[in-house]
Amino acid sequence: MTLLDFARGPALAVSFAVFTFGVAWRVLFLVLLPWSRDRSVARGSAPSAVVGAVRGFARHLWPRKAFAGAARFTTVNGYVMHFGLAIAFFGFAPHILFLQSVFGVHWPNLPSGLVSVASVVTLVSLVLALGHRFVSPVLRLISTANDYFSWFVTALPVVSGLMAVSHLWAPYETLLAVHLLSVALLLIWFPFGKLMHAFLVFVTRSETAIHYSRRGTVL
């Protein structure tokens, strides 16, 4: 069995299973936890929980003026990174084939050149994010191994994907195998580390928004 056979077969199969197990466990656990009831009396002006959640979520998409200076870099860089990643992940023809073979749905692909540009931008943005984490004293203080490892497993598929496309340094079959293995690693780590924010961001931000809107705070 070649490295590519291993990556396309057992490695991906195991990573799918671990990912599914981890996500199911964490989401269900959170939903079924004994949540404390909010015993405060809702303000008369308070919207329903759903409206409050949506409104708060939308409000948090961009920082308030007061924080604009401090948060500008992380916000803008965060968006660049996430959009770049989305373009590369959902727009590249081989990725669509991958998703199609897993989920059965497909859509038109973007030109490879555009995807390459998006990937390079994503990578630069990832490097800047890491740099910022090193430079900012506060961020450095609160960063844990979890943060660095989550960064690593995100950056690895981007780097290996770019190398596979440009056939750099190694034969394509090796690069493609490394790329798929890096994706497997990401999927395996996903539910247990900070990457879980992809699901939990909706939970945490909504929770905060409901808490405040119930008290009449307009965010």
């Binding site: 056979d5 396309r8 077969g9 057992p10 991906l12 199969a13 195991v14 799918f16 299973a17 671990v18 599914t20 197990f21 981890g22 996500v23 199911a24 466990w25 964490r26 989401v27 269900l28 656990f29 079924l32 081989p94 990725h95 084939l97 991958f98 199609q100 073979s101 897993v102 493609l176 798929l180």
Partner: peptide, 23 residues
Amino acid sequence: LSTPTGHPTAAVGAAAVAGIGVG
């Protein structure tokens, strides 16, 4: 070439059940 070769539906299904159970 970019697609997985296996279709581990059973394994993934079992993993989902196990995850739900543990959760």
